[in-house]
Write a protein that binds this DNA or RNA. Structure first.
Length: 463
DNA sequence: TCTTACACCTT
DNA sequence: CAAGGTGTAAG
């Protein structure tokens, strides 16, 4: 597992249920009270990529949010249910290329600003809490230290973890401003390690954005289901007269960043309709990138994200049908995270020169629990359904280098990282990149798959 | 890095 | 319907 945020035993008041998965307990039990994380599967998916939560001035809901089922409470006892979000670790982070790096000590958490969020049903009888799911969807996160709306105030680029407090209410005790909820000795605290997250003001990891879009109903407008006018429009502009079935669709190419004093840096996001992202095309495309790049630039990293749903040509396909596969190429060893800081949420597999790794998609229930297989060269695994081998004809449709160059145009600076400081670390590792040997293992049954291959990579040029 | 207006969506 | 939750693009 690439993220191991919370050490076991960090919350001394919680014991793990031995029946559940060791690192991701879906149920925690303490003093006869058990709490299960209802949306554990979603949390695990996010966790495996390194969950990020947006902070805004006016307050932003969490997604996923904390949703629990309670058991073992005294049915007649009144309880307050309170969620607090506490700092995890004492570092500040930054997103560098494709991973989180420590940048320094954490910002001091002003004690006066630490808040907890009382569930809107509080207080309630134990039987009431146990009869329904307890969702903290109303909780909002903010980076505004002056916030007057009772939102949880957090620091961007810091790690946090939510904690659920079950607080028995003494008879007749309604919380007031003068007499607030007090954590007595009878209180219980439950912390699920998989709910850890990084607070951000803008998403850093592309995979997190995709997970949010795929799972959050409010982000449905950004889903790639063929009905999205926004995305269709981009598609038309970018490939006006090329035969669509063979031409990779370049969605977000970037020009060099503004900061050209020492280094140029590009970051690309390319979408290829999956039926045409046959392994041989992936191979060609990689070769394309490498040959175009070797003479002038060194590529710091390449990430492939294949997002597809098997056997679901309906636009209304359930998000849960969507599987994700990640292909990681690390031509250059970038600054590895220290052993002391295991927070490396994005890159899995070996960080070796020229290694291309495709992470096999898992079944929904355990989508993120297993470590990926690492193989030499480029190997492609797809879902078992898609695994049957068919002849591959796409070698006849090479992607020409000039065409890719032409397609570059300016995009959001977010993709053209302009922080020169970041390059200096990487530059120390940068030399000429050699094209890795790419061998394709399998050709999937493309008819069964629809989706997209996302390719993003960053490169830089020494001036 | 962070903020804002916005189209598009759910509730 | 209106209110309000999304990520995006631009600054």
């Amino acid at each position: 597992m690439c993220v191991c945020g919370l050490r076991k035993g960090e919350n001394g008041s919680v014991t793990e249920n031995p029946d559940v998965e060791k690192d991701f307990p879906a149920v925690l039990t303490f003093k006869g009270v058990s709490v299960s994380l209802e949306n554990n599967n979603v949390w695990k998916q996010f966790y495996s990529c390194g969950t990020e939560m947006i902070l805004t001035k006016q307050g932003r809901r969490m997604f996923p949010y904390c949703r629990y089922r309670l058991a073992g409470l005294d049915p007649n006892q009144q309880y307050n249910l309170v969620l607090s979000i506490v700092p995890l670790g004492q570092y500040r982070y930054r997103w560098s290329a494709s991973r989180w790096e420590v940048t320094g000590r954490a910002e001091h958490q002003n004690q006066g600003l630490i808040r907890a969020f009382s569930h809107h049903y509080s207080p309630c009888r134990g039987s009431d809490w146990m009869n329904s799911l307890v969702s903290f969807y109303k909780l909002k996160l903010t980076n505004n230290s002056q916030d007057q709306d009772g939102h949880i105030i957090l620091h961007s680029m810091h790690r946090y973890i939510p904690r659920l407090h079950i607080i028995p209410v003494p008879d007749g005790g309604m919380p007031t401003n003068d007499n607030p909820v007090v954590m007595g000795h009878e209180s219980m605290t439950f912390t699920f390690p998989q709910t850890e997250f990084m607070a951000v003001t803008t998403y850093q990891n592309f995979r997190i954005t995709q997970l949010k879009i795929n799972h959050n109903p409010f982000a449905k407008g950004f889903r790639q289901d063929g009905n999205n006018p926004r995305l269709n429009r981009i598609a038309r502009e970018d490939q006006p007269m090329v035969k669509a079935e063979y031409q990779p669709l370049v969605l977000k190419p970037a020009e060099p960043s503004e900061n050209q004093e020492e280094l140029n840096c590009w970051k690309y996001l390319i979408k290829i309709p999956l039926p045409h992202a046959a392994p041989s095309q992936i191979k060609e495309f990689c070769t394309e990138i490498m040959t175009e790049s070797t003479c002038l630039v060194s590529i710091t990293n390449i990430n492939f994200y294949v997002s597809y749903s098997a056997n679901s040509h309906s636009p209304s396909a359930s998000p849960s049908n969507v599987q994700e596969t990640r292909l990681v190429l690390k031509p250059i060893m970038s600054n590895p995270a220290s052993k002391d800081d295991p927070y490396v949420p994005c890159i899995r597999g070996k960080h070796a020169l020229g290694e291309l790794v495709l992470v096999e998609p898992k079944e929904e229930s355990n989508a993120t629990s297993a470590a990926p297989e690492v193989q030499e060269g480029l190997k492609v695994w797809l879902s078992p359904k898609a695994r049957s081998v068919t002849p591959n004809s796409s070698t006849s449709t090479p992607v020409s280098s000039p065409r890719f160059r032409k397609r570059r145009k300016r995009i959001n600076r977010r993709w053209a990282n302009s922080r020169g400081r970041e390059y200096k670390t990487a530059a120390a590792y940068s030399t000429v990149v050699h094209s890795p040997s790419l061998t394709v293992a399998m050709q999937p049954e493309m008819d069964d798959i629809e989706g997209l291959l996302f390719v993003s990579f960053a490169s830089k040029v020494k001036r």
